[in-house]
Design a protein around this nucleic acid. Structure first.
Length: 679
DNA sequence: ACGACCTGTCATCTA
DNA sequence: AATAGATGACAGGTC
């Protein structure tokens, strides 16, 4: 039982990690997990390792699939899905599982671990048969979410894995772990023990190489293989069936004992294979926030001598979390992340997630309020992490903040234009975004500014944080001050020497300045206030989602006002564009109508002229015919009649009458008038 | 320097 | 009541 609990706890940890990596926050608690999912199964399915694995896998997979797509804004998918998923999972109970531990676990084992499993993992060690079966079963049954991801992604992931480089996954959503890719993970011993060889960096590499979602799901599905992996790390040959009765028989009593943390003894008179997991389990419980998480984690991480920098990859992902307070490497990684993701569209990037959780956790630990704040940590951190995602790490600026304060609907063009004016742009650009120190420094201040971290740390109010950046327009100084404040607050030894290392080259600064110049006003404001969405997202998201976003905790009034302004301006801008386009269309349409009518008028005039000519010709011809006819007529005496005294009159019945003009003159006036009109 | 044009924004009205 | 959309008016930038 102990083994099972440990394995599932570690699997859950990794699952939580990887859900975080793929942008979905899940704070499934260990106890909830065990009691809600595993315990009933353990009661009936002990010994059937795959059974109690698959059920939670499928449940979670189905849950994920149910929240996979946002109908209108795919970029927001992860955010809203995580929110809904979090709410749902919350209903399962508390306490929550500290995400920070997840981050720590990923970095726990140095990448240079000279374990045999490392090479095997990269090279793709042969998988255990049962693990492959489970993997196959999971892949066949539950991969509904991958239906739209298709085999091309697998091919892509497969190619990436074959290359063997830890190059970053181009897109977490576009990556998916193939079965072959998941092979190395099966050999990863999911241990927390210090002396255990845990090439977790391989997990991170694999997670970066391939899809986090698939990875997470399959890792959880491979709890049986994790068990085997553990056995391998416990010097138990892998050839031994992990679910052998002996092993289970040895593990169950321990698990029952270990299920009570207070009764856990660091050294138990068990076998070596059992005592190590026991200690590991104890370590895990001591680290996972059940007792005193915040103190143990950094200590053990440091005790392990983990080469954090070695765990960093080019694609700053989960590693960021660990090195947040670590100084240069952390900021370098963060800077790289910020420079790589200049747009806010990179929602829920892999690297951001644990990063945002560290600060509040760290604050809580430093203030001794971690346990108290732990319950709210994830709640706030959910939004915080999203709050910080895709923002880049640009800094705050006094002018921007003041602008924001005064920009709740009225014109602020003057201040904005002053920023863009040539005279001020040179100075302000450097202050704003050009300096990487400022960027990195602003991260520290900005992360604390509006987030729950700031709230969690009584020593850092919003005004103080803003003041760090506002009152000194030389951004280096501002950053240094903020960095110093953060050092004092976070207890991380960040030296100015390290800060200097972060200074970008002039070319890089120029490039960044150019990028910032290209940003719109609202984009700058959004960055300044760390609005976790791009302007287009804010403008185009459905009103329901937007209102939901506004009601989220963690948003300051300034952020809410800015969000509304951005949305209003953005929509009005689009409306103005449409209006002008329509106006131009109307104008062009009217111009076309004018041309058409002009042509029609000309045509009608031409036709009238032609008809008039034809009418005159016919009239003349009629007159000639009448004269000719009348000249041939004779009266009763045989004398020719005078054409001037007679005229021809066509009757309605077609008869032609010869009437004296006198008679014609005596006809009714109306008829005469009509006949006059005809002539 | 000036004017035409474009664009963003605000105010206002309407649905 | 809140929101989106439409539109006139204004201001600044660009050519």
């Amino acid at each position: 039982m102990q083994y099972l609990k440990k394995y599932f706890s570690e699997g859950l940890i990794q699952f939580t990690i990887l859900l975080s990596l793929m942008g979905v926050r899940v704070d499934v608690t260990l106890d909830t997990y065990l009691t809600g999912y595993l315990s009933p199964l353990l009661e009936t399915n002990v010994g059937q390792s795959s059974a109690y694995v698959q059920t939670p896998v499928h449940n979670l997979r189905d849950t994920l699939d149910g929240y996979s797509l946002h109908p209108k804004c795919p970029d927001l998918d992860s955010y809203f899905a995580s929110r809904r998923l979090l709410d749902e999972v919350r209903t399962l109970g508390s306490p929550r599982f500290p995400t920070r531990l997840s981050a720590w676990l990923v970095h726990l084992v140095p990448s240079g671990s000279d374990s045999a499993g490392s090479g095997e993992a990269r090279g793709g060690a042969p998988a255990l048969a049962d693990a492959a079966d489970v993997n196959r079963a999971v892949g066949e049954e539950g991969d509904t979410c991958a239906s739209n991801s298709s085999a091309s992604r697998r091919d892509e992931s497969r190619r990436a894995a074959q290359e063997g480089d830890a190059r970053p996954c181009p897109s977490p959503a576009a990556c998916e772990l193939s079965k072959e890719d998941s092979q190395p993970l099966r050999n990863v011993p999911w241990n927390l023990s210090q002396d255990a060889v845990v090439p977790v960096d391989q997990v991170a590499d694999a997670a970066e190489l391939t899809g986090r979602r698939e990875l997470a799901i399959r890792q959880l599905a491979h709890s049986d293989s994790l068990e085997e992996s553990f056995l391998s790390s416990s010097n138990i040959p892998l050839s031994q069936p992990s679910s052998s009765p002996d092993t289970q028989a040895a593990s169950r009593p321990d698990t029952q004992a270990a299920s009570r943390p207070d009764t856990q003894a660091a050294s138990r008179p068990d076998t070596q294979a059992a005592s190590r997991p026991d200690r590991q389990w104890h370590d895990f419980l001591s680290l996972s926030g059940f007792d005193d998480l915040e103190l143990d984690v950094p200590l053990r991480a440091s005790d392990l001598g983990v080469d954090i920098s070695s765990a960093l990859s080019q694609d700053v992902s989960l590693q960021d979390a660990l090195v947040t307070g670590g100084g240069t490497e952390a900021r370098r990684a963060l800077r790289q992340e910020s420079t790589n993701s200049t747009h806010s569209d990179s929602l829920l990037g892999a690297g951001d997630l644990p990063m945002h959780l560290l600060l509040p956790v760290e604050n809580g630990s430093r203030n001794g309020t971690f346990n108290g704040s732990l319950s709210g940590c994830l709640d706030e951190a959910v939004f915080e992490q999203i709050n910080l995602l895709g923002l880049g790490l640009e800094g705050l600026d006094t002018q921007l903040l003041e602008e924001r304060d005064s920009d709740s609907g009225l014109s602020m063009s003057s201040s904005f234009r002053s920023l863009r004016s040539p005279s001020s742009s040179e100075a302000s650009s450097g202050e704003l975004y050009g300096d990487d120190n400022g960027a990195a420094g602003c991260l520290s201040a900005a992360e604390l500014l509006d987030s729950g971290a700031a709230a969690a740390s009584p020593r850092w109010s919003n005004s103080e944080l803003a003041e760090c950046v506002q009152h000194n327009h030389t951004y280096n100084a501002a950053f240094q001050r903020s960095a110093t404040c953060c050092q004092e607050d976070l207890g991380h030894a960040v030296h100015h020497k390290d800060i200097k290392e972060e200074v970008l080259s002039e070319d890089e600064e120029e490039e960044e300045e150019e990028e910032e110049v290209e940003l719109s006003r609202d984009e700058r404001h959004a960055r300044a206030l760390r609005i976790p969405f791009s302007v287009s997202e804010i403008v185009n998201m459905p009103v329901e989602d937007f209102l939901e976003l506004l009601t989220r905790r963690g948003l300051t009034q300034a952020q809410v006002a800015l969000l509304r302004d951005i949305r209003r301006r953005g929509k009005n801008k689009l409306a103005a564009q449409n209006c002008r386009k329509r106006k131009l269309d109307v104008i062009s349409g009217l111009e076309g109508e004018v041309e058409r009518l002009g042509r029609q008028r000309d045509r009608l005039l031409r036709e009238r002229t032609q008809h008039s000519r034809a009418l005159c010709a016919m009239k003349q011809k009629l007159e000639q015919l009448s004269q000719d006819l009348l000249s041939r007529l004779r009266d009763e005496r045989g004398r020719p009649i005078s054409p001037s005294c007679y005229t021809l009159q066509c009757g309605s019945d077609g008869r032609v009458l010869v009437l004296p003009r006198r008679h014609i003159s005596g006809q009714p006036k109306t008829e005469k008038r009509r006949s006059d009109k005809k002539h």
